[in-house]
Write a protein that binds this DNA or RNA. Structure first.
Lengths: 155, 155
DNA sequence: CGCCCGATTCACAAATTTGTGAATCTTCTG
DNA sequence: CAGAAGATTCACAAATTTGTGAATCGGGCG
């Protein structure tokens, strides 16, 4: 079956839209999905700009964002400033799911709210404590989940 | 220890800000956290408006959103149209984490992208398939995780 | 039945986000 | 070391998002 560029482009955009709906910034999402389906060796900034129909400036901002959060990395091309951008292959979804410290942060805020209420018998305090416990639980289990995935993937 | 309204309010806002950073709409996030720490029986719309310092219209939109995604429910007050809003107590974080069909959707899009590429030996197709597998894995494990939490919580 | 209080909706204004073009900077090539 | 191609940055413009005020709707009470 031949490569269906049109369907591929549509799917890239739809996937990016899902990420965007989940709070992911728009342009980084589009770049991310474009690179996901890219051929070996990644793409250059200008190739990305062409495929997505956006300016070089937009690409620059997006790849900076993505490399900061550890999803991409730049692959310098010897003897050229046309660097290519690539996935940190198996790292990106784990980064997306687990590396974020956000669960721990929310847990701490839950405890802080309960402290501010002061009375542990207060239902609000109880809910806040439970929120804290829940997110600590998630925070703790996430690494296990990722390990399980690794095993599944390799085995 | 007495209730520290000021610290509580600050924590509510900070927690809402974290949710917002994770892509959750701003006003619903604030309402959500305000109700989390509220006393038994929930709050009325106007109480919410007062505590958050926003208009009735903003509250109306936020509670509509939250009840649509199944985090709140309205508790009609017999003989009054001043309904109260409450948590669906233990359901809210599971709703936040698991009930969303988003993992399945992303998985499907990954497969569709691989199909559009057509050649399974293509590295882009391989990555798309792996994305699909990963999110299906998450989708499948999430209910288990929630069950584990329930047991931990009760036991 | 008619008044009143509160919730909801809608059009608009404010604020934030997003992407562009032009200028600037960097580094490879001759 | 000068020229050039590409990347990056910055100020601004367009587009979205967010929340308000005013008008509307609707149920409860006299």
């Amino acid at each position: 079956m031949p490569r269906d560029e049109q369907a591929l482009k549509a799917t890239v955009e739809q996937s990016a839209a899902v990420l965007t709906a989940a709070g992911f910034p728009r342009m980084p999402a589009r770049v991310l999905m474009a690179l996901l389906v890219a051929e070996a060796g990644g793409l250059t900034a200008s190739e990305l700009g062409d495929r997505l129909g956006v300016s070089a400036a937009a690409i620059s901002g997006a790849v900076r964002y993505l490399s900061q959060i550890g999803i991409l990395h730049r692959v310098p091309q010897p003897g050229s400033r046309r660097d290519r951008w690539e996935f940190l292959d198996d790292a990106w979804y784990t980064a997306l799911m687990a590396k974020s410290p956000v669960y721990g942060v929310i847990a701490d805020l839950g405890d802080r709210a309960a402290d501010a209420i002061g009375d542990e018998s207060d239902i609000g305090a109880a809910r806040a404590r439970e929120m804290a416990r829940f997110y600590r639980f998630i925070d703790a289990r996430m690494p296990d989940l990722m390990r399980e995935w690794e095993e599944l993937r390799e085995g």
